[in-house]
Design a protein around this nucleic acid. Structure first.
Lengths: 328, 328
DNA sequence: CTTGAACTTGAAATCGATTTCTGGCAATCT
DNA sequence: AGATTGCCAGAAATCGATTTCAAGTTCAAG
């Protein structure tokens, strides 16, 4: 690998001039050509580490997500990537596994690697962003809010979604509606549950035994559904607060020979590869890709020096009723 | 953010000593304590960019994959991450979208960011790894082979898998067996097709119109299935060479009111969230996570200086017959 | 003809760590 | 006692780019 010094030597100019040519600063046409020729001949690629050390910033943005195996987040990642790529940034994906320690570690790496900015779907309520912000690194919160920090955020309306989903189940004729939500210290879990609670209370159907907390994964959905069905008076419908738990809940249903006509279901978030999914499930569709696109746009604006007050953007969810229930 | 110089000043020692304490080199207990105290007081984190510039290497490994939205690859990523994490490395995920240019760009970034090593599921047959290898950066090929380079590789047996899947369809009583495979310049696509071809020829059922190339995604599977069903004499079964295309093919089937009893199906690779998937599909299960784990182990051995000749590890696939067809 | 504004260019400082080189000091061996 | 070995720690060089500073040119205005 060649350095700027070797290019300079071959072109017969100073390293400073080579740097200027590379960065498009005023240089005479002739020297510019000399440098380009030399660089081509040596297959020169500037060392990003050195550049980043000097400039105190790199063209990399970090996307920190809690579960890389959840299609919701990979879809979001795609959105981020497409925007970032077009703006000349590369994206590194950091998977925290909902673990605050892993999250802290990745954030600290982001600082010490001089990354240009961070898009964060926070694992914990208690992230410490102070070191990042002190260094002037822009951070955009996505999916999960900016816990006490003054940040741009891109969200969906979790409470409204929880309400709509629950109401839809009542509208379909169910009356004992349970809720399987995520870990109690995760904001999205709290809010979706909150939406459910509002509606069941309004309908006089509130029963605290119908509320289950689980991890946001398939096995969590399974376990919670098992518990619900084991109750003395099991619910006749369930609002499940994320896509993967819905998969788990459906598995349990089918394994017991039940269908969504016996036990109604509404899922917050599209079932992954949903065309393989059973009909009869009400879905709150989340604009996953669009969340990513929007977050990336905001971040890049901030990187480019925009310093207006922090914005929170709430994207709309769409609800789709099940196709067969009601018609059959 | 504080630097090693500030820590040195506060501790009353030289920067060199601070560095030595951080790296566990011989330093007297007393100075060591002074340095630790000072570092703690300043919340000092070493600047990775500077370290990496000097050491000519970082603790980051790049995982380059063609499709981040494919659960096969994210599952592999999880495997890589777990091993890397435990060994003190962080993993950055690079999504090439099967685009050789994006791939080349990410590989070049990997070099110029001094990354410790690369795990590559190559998009194209014609990757140029020479610059990487010249710099002594270890590269491990995963899922797709090392095209002409002398690399460690971790693979599954694509030809055997194609054969088994096709044979299973014959065994289930189907006779006109089509193949939906990936892009013709992707090695895994070629080999899975090759396995299919061997078996259909052996059974005297070869018909070139039954071979379709598509991209490795859901829409590719849809398009190919549409074309197959539009043939004068459509096939009565299909071997689909990857998981996402199987999803697409199944969609088309169901939309036309057909089932896997009318048109048999075998999928190379688990259907994503397969418990939602229809029964009646023969599956070649791929050890996705294990591929990642193995690749990461090999890579870390190389990073640590192992220089035995290149190894190729082939992991076993398992086939599972459909549960309902044949029993029903 | 002089002055200075505008533009190129190179030398050298800089980013923040690691590492080599070297000197000082104490312990060990003749 | 004198020579040798070994350890510790500071000064300075180093990684490879960018950027500041200052010098040298050219050209137009006064």
């Amino acid at each position: 690998m060649s350095t700027i010094y070797e290019v300079a030597a071959l072109a017969g100019v100073s390293p400073a001039t080579v740097s200027r040519v590379l960065n498009g600063v005023n240089v005479s046409a002739e020297k510019s050509r000399l440098v380009r020729d030399a660089a081509g001949k040596l297959a020169f690629t500037p060392n990003r580490t050195a550049r980043s050390l000097r400039k105190q910033s790199s063209e990399v943005i970090a996307l920190v997500i809690p579960d890389i195996e959840n299609p919701f987040f990979t879809s979001m990642a795609r959105g981020v990537e497409d925007v970032a790529q077009a703006a000349g940034y590369s994206v590194v994906l950091c998977n925290t596994d909902e673990d605050p320690d892993k999250e802290a570690s990745y954030l600290s790496i982001a600082v010490s690697e001089n990354m240009a900015g961070i898009i964060l779907a926070a694992a914990s309520d208690h992230v410490d962003l102070a070191p990042l912000l002190r260094r002037g690194r822009p951070v955009v919160a996505v999916d999960r809010g900016p816990h006490g920090f003054d940040l741009d955020a891109v969200m969906v309306d979790n409470i409204a979604g929880g309400r709509e989903a629950t109401q839809a189940l009542y509208d379909q004729g169910f009356s004992r509606i349970a809720c399987i939500t995520g870990p109690s210290d995760v904001e999205t879990a709290q809010r979706r549950e909150h939406g459910w609670r509002q509606v069941v209370i309004a309908n006089g159907g509130h029963d605290e035994r119908y509320l289950k907390h689980a991890n946001f994964r398939v096995d969590g959905g399974r376990a919670a559904m098992d518990e619900l069905l084991a109750l003395e008076t099991p619910p006749d419908a369930v609002f499940v607060a994320n896509n993967l738990m819905s998969v788990g809940a459906l598995q349990v249903l089918f394994e017991r020979g039940l269908t969504t006509e016996n036990v109604g279901m509404a899922s917050f978030g599209d079932l992954p590869f949903s065309t393989l999914a059973p009909r009869g499930v009400t879905i709150i569709h989340l604009p996953a890709r669009h969340l990513g696109v929007t977050a990336a746009r905001l971040l890049i604006e901030r990187i480019n020096g925009d310093d207006q007050p922090a914005r929170t953007i709430v994207l709309r969810n769409e609800i789709s009723a099940p196709t067969s229930v009601g018609s059959a």
